[in-house]
Amino acid sequence: MPAAPAMSSLLDTVATERHRLRGEEVSARFLGTVSSGIAAWEAAVTAFDAGGEAAQALPAVAEAFAMADDTAAVARAAEDVIRMGVAKPLDVLVVGLAQVNRELVRENRRPVAMVRKAAAMERRATSRWRGAEGRKGLLVNRDLQLEEARLAVRDVLSDAREVAALLRRWRSQPVP
């Protein structure tokens, strides 16, 4: 399931408890994580368009939507509370945001794998044992791999932007 429908479902679930969720900080941190992931991919795609190397972009995009350790600890604690059956609306929100985050990370795996493959092609193209034709062929294949990655990134970014827009809209609504 894409992350945007999961986010919409979560926000519908906690809509009646909005007054209790006033001032919570978890959704702001989650929004920051999604926004930084979007920014990392946009910077990587811009670098690819300018002729940048995949190996340089790989560290930033590999962890693009990774949840911070403190937020992950809060999510684990909320999952435990829900499992015990004494959940508050904030716990439901935290667990839902963690699930949406997992979906984004899952969607992110495909383009990251493509960028890793392109980075491996770049490394092999620098081998001194390859002839000029072999290097050119590898670099052409790398460019094709990066083009496929761009297409996959477009889908991930579309979903991530929709998640961010839903959450921003929900956070900006007045509390009844």
Rank of each mutant, 00 (worst) to 15 (best):
E25G: 09
V26H: 12
R29K: 14
F30I: 08
L31H: 10
G32K: 06
T33M: 14
V34R: 03
V34W: 08
V34C: 13
V34H: 00
G37I: 07
G37A: 10
I38C: 11
I38Q: 11
A39V: 07
A40G: 04
A43Y: 04
V45D: 14
E53R: 15
Q56W: 06
Q56M: 06
Q56R: 13
A57S: 15
L58M: 07
P59H: 14
P59Y: 10
P59L: 13
V61N: 01
A62D: 05
E63D: 14
A64H: 07
A64G: 07
F65I: 02
F65M: 08
F65R: 00
F65A: 07
A66V: 10
A68Q: 09
D70Q: 10
D70I: 03
T71V: 12
T71G: 05
T71H: 13
A72F: 15
A73L: 14
A77W: 09
A78T: 11
E79I: 04
V81N: 03
I82K: 11
R83F: 04
R83Y: 02
V86W: 01
V86M: 07
V86F: 15
A87P: 08
A87I: 06
K88I: 04
P89R: 15
L90V: 04
D91A: 02
L93R: 08
V94W: 00
V94R: 01
V95Q: 00
L97H: 02
A98L: 05
N101R: 07
R102N: 02
R102C: 01
L104M: 04
V105F: 01
R106G: 04
R106W: 01
E107V: 00
E107W: 00
R109H: 02
R109V: 09
R110P: 05
R110H: 10
P111G: 02
V112Y: 03
